[in-house]
Design a protein around this nucleic acid. Structure first.
Ligand SMILES: [Mn+2]
Ligand SMILES: [Mn+2]
Length: 765
DNA sequence: GGTATCA
DNA sequence: TGATACCAACGCCTT
DNA sequence: AAGGCG
């Protein structure tokens, strides 16, 4: 093309200009950053104080020295500790007066030769709560103090301070160490079991220990790594294996301490209801819906999965069973097939089993055995918690949820859903064989299900209804998402469900509405002002407007009813300010918004990783979520007192640095035409009166996607915003909790980060 | 989506 | 009473 | 002053 030459040339020109501007703007950013440090922010001490903050209770010398002395003091202290440990247990004896402490003196008893080494974790309520991990090696217990405890999320790296070796007898010790003695406070055995060293027994000396732990809380592969800080400063984190994933400190997130160590026996007689009953309410009981299907025990042992006594095992169920978080497990449940109304059908089940098993799912409701433990002695509630933790999200193996106490409410919901009945289970009862009085079958009169209302939805809805809302819902059947068929009622039901976790991100903040009274394909409009006719219980606040001189009466969504009112107005997502009425000029978070427009989502992922890496590198903890539309949001919670200018400048510096590091795929260019298929790193939302959607709001786009907090290690190839919708986010929330909550609860100081960012920038240039 | 106004 | 009209944001930047 | 952008 004739015009190709000149156009190419001008593109080059533009790029040159852009590069030039980048540098200039970055310079300016750095200067301004310095300027507000001078503005009275505290001097930078974050890098060392972060370490001290973690370690100071465990390193008395560092504590005395105070924050100012920083990492050097720690290293000196560590060196002394290391030297003193030359005689492995010498230091242990030295610290203790055995006339006063109940702890065992070091005698080095012999263990049976060839016995597998053990580990024990003490929960130690000393000056500060911590967990002492002790590993048997060469006749002593190597010990680490872990202040923040353990996490099954491999992204969580927790400080572990190497402490003096303890004698083997300590594995059985628990009790109270008297005041004035070393480590005064209560010491409990939190977990124990066997350990295998994956990289040999020399790991502790080499600065890296890879372990497999087999306990009731800690299981699977863990990794201890010595840091550069000093010989006693280590990190412990979960390695990736079948148990890894969620942030919790015990495998399955359940208390298995009362389980009985035993081999797996698959030929048990399943527990049955002892008698029938009418719907009732009772605090000792939990209630599950009863599904029409085929009762079966599912067994996994290594790579072998079977449905006990069922020859026609559906392949989808079997492959899903391979994915549960256990080497060995026995699950109790029913095989079922759902018709087009999501209602289980026996005839359909028989048909589908005969046809090879497609469309058949296993609805699990109990966990009988897990790894080395017979769970039958555990209370029903604990077994269900274990089962919930055992199951990652699977298409063919599903968790049967329950309600506590309110059997009559569930009966209502179940009746509306067209299911045959309930099972009541005594919450504290063990798992028995055969009929038991601790399970009761509850029949309810079948009523034809309301057309179009799915079983799951009806169950949730019915059980939820209790506190009368002040909001009357209009047009609940209006279709808001034509492609998916989701209605305004679905949207309201979603928000009712997540209100509790969403509200903290809305409370106290003026709110902008983007209303879609005719669904996502209809016309929409923005609204800030509370119109006359707004219920008097909706909180409002007057905020001056520059362009029109007068002030506007903004709404503030403090409560659940306000939320539902706003949603009923046709608001699909909600747009709260980043600052609150009480401090309107001080944002509570900084956001970096990644907008792909044309760019592939894999580019967004790469850029987000880079932003995360940079932020962590300057000492702040970033939080990640999907925007719900097409991109990602990275949030940093802010300590009180920063203004929008500082917040934006910080975001701008980060955005420009990352755009410069990934020039092929990232840009800070605001004009769509100039972006050229790159991901837009938008820092400009950090202004007063601008908004970015908070987590858990539904977006007015195809798929009814939800802005969903993510763990950083979910940033992988097949991640996509479309995976998180109004249908599945409540379940995810139930499973993972609110990953974003630290943004509000653990706000961070920007000043040290800005200083570190400058250092970083200078070093890079 | 809600309200005012009109026939 | 039902049908219909009308209304519901803004700041900042580029051209 | 108008249009783009979020
Ligand atoms: Mn301790
Ligand atoms: Mn965005």
């Amino acid at each position: 093309m004739a015009a190709g030459g000149p156009r190419e040339h001008s593109a080059e020109q533009t790029e040159c200009d852009a590069e030039g501007r980048f540098d200039l703007r970055l310079e300016r950013g750095a200067e301004l950053a310095l300027a507000f440090l001078a503005d009275g922010m505290r001097p930078p001490q974050v890098l060392d104080s972060a370490v001290l903050g973690e370690a100071h209770d465990l390193a008395p010398v560092a504590l005395e020295a105070g924050a100012a002395i920083s990492g050097r003091a720690l290293r000196r202290y560590d060196a002394r500790v290391a030297k003193a440990r030359d005689d492995s247990l010498g230091r242990y004896d030295e610290k203790r007066d055995f006339e006063r402490t109940p702890e065992p003196a070091a005698k080095r008893p012999k263990r049976a030769k060839g016995a597998p080494p053990i580990f024990v974790v003490h929960r130690h309520e000393a000056r500060r709560l911590h967990y002492d991990l002790r590993l048997e090696r060469a006749g002593v217990l190597l010990s680490w103090a872990v202040p923040k405890g353990f996490s099954y999320d491999p992204a969580d790296k927790h400080l572990a301070v190497r402490t003096e070796d303890h004698p083997l007898e300590y594995e059985d010790f628990h009790g109270v160490i008297p005041k004035g003695e070393y480590g005064a406070g209560t010491m409990q055995i939190w977990d124990r079991g066997h350990v295998t060293y994956l990289n040999g027994e020399g790991g502790p000396e080499a600065g890296e220990v890879k372990l497999v732990l087999r306990g009731r809380r800690l299981r699977g592969e863990w990794h201890l790594v010595q840091t550069k800080q000093g010989p006693n400063t280590w990190l412990i984190f979960k390695s990736r294996d079948r148990y890894a994933g969620v942030r919790r400190d015990s495998v399955l997130g359940a208390d298995l301490s009362q389980a009985e160590e035993a081999p797996l026996r698959r030929e048990i007689a399943p527990m049955e209801p002892g008698a029938a009953a009418q719907p009732f309410t009772g605090t000792q009981w939990l209630f599950e819906a009863r599904f029409q299907g085929r009762r079966v025990l599912a067994c996994k042992e290594g790579d072998e999965v079977v449905l006990v006594g069922e020859k026609r095992a559906p392949p989808g169920v079997l492959t899903d069973l391979l994915k549960i978080r256990a080497e060995r497990a026995l699950l109790d449940g029913v095989l079922l097939a759902l018709d087009e109304h999501e209602r289980p059908s026996r005839t359909l089940l028989e048909e589908r089993l005969a046809a090879g098993g497609a469309g058949v799912v296993f609805q699990a409701f109990d966990l009988v055995h897990f790894e080395d433990y017979d769970l039958r002695p555990l209370p029903t509630l604990e077994r269900k918690a274990a089962l919930r933790g055992l199951l990652p999200p699977l298409a063919h193996v599903l968790f049967t949820d329950h309600v506590l106490g309110r059997g009559e409410d569930l009966a209502e919901a179940v009746r509306a859903a067209g299911l045959p009945g309930l099972i009541a289970k005594r919450a504290g009862a063990p798992y028995a064989s055969g009929p038991s009085a601790d399970w009761r079958s509850i029949e309810i009169g079948v009523e034809p299900a309301v057309a179009g209302v799915s079983v799951r939805r009806a169950l949730k809805k019915g059980v939820r209804e209790r506190s009368r809302s002040r909001v009357t819902f209009t047009n609940p059947d209006k279709v808001y998402w034509p492609a998916e068929g989701f209605t305004k009622g679905d949207l309201l039901a979603y928000y009712e469900q997540v209100a509790e976790v969403l509200l903290p991100y809305l409370a106290g903040r003026p709110i902008h509405l983007n209303r879609f009274p005719d669904g996502i394909t209809g016309k929409s409009f923005y609204q800030k002002e509370a119109k006359p006719g707004t219920p008097e219980w909706v909180r409002t606040t007057d905020i001056g407007s520059k362009s029109r001189g007068e002030s506007l009466r903004y709404m503030v969504c403090d409560e659940r009813d306000t939320l539902l009112y706003l949603v009923n107005l046709g608001s699909i997502d909600l747009h709260p300010w980043m600052s609150r009425v009480e401090s309107p000029d001080s944002p509570d978070w900084t956001v970096i918004d990644l907008d792909p427009k044309e760019a592939p989502f894999s580019d967004v992922i790469r850029i987000a990783r880079e932003v995360g890496r940079l932020l962590r590198g300057i000492g702040v903890k970033p939080f990640l979520k999907t925007s719900g539309a097409s991109g990602l949001h990275i949030f940093v919670g802010l300590a009180p007192g920063y203004d929008y200018r500082q917040s934006e400048l910080f975001a701008e510096s980060v955005a420009r640095i990352v755009a410069r590091e990934l020039p092929e795929i990232a840009t800070v260019e605001r004009s769509l035409a100039e972006r050229g298929g790159k991901v837009y790193i938008d820092f400009g939302q950090n202004r007063k009166g601008q908004t970015v959607v908070p987590p858990y709001v539904v977006r007015p786009v195809r798929g009814a996607t939800v802005s969903t907090p993510l763990a950083w290690d979910e940033l992988e190839g097949d991640l996509h915003p479309s995976h998180f919708t109004l249908q599945n986010v409540p379940e995810r929330l139930e499973r993972l909790g609110d990953l974003f909550r630290p943004v509000l609860l653990e706000p961070q100081d920007l000043a040290p980060a800005i200083f570190a960012l400058e250092e970083y920038w200078k070093g890079r240039r």
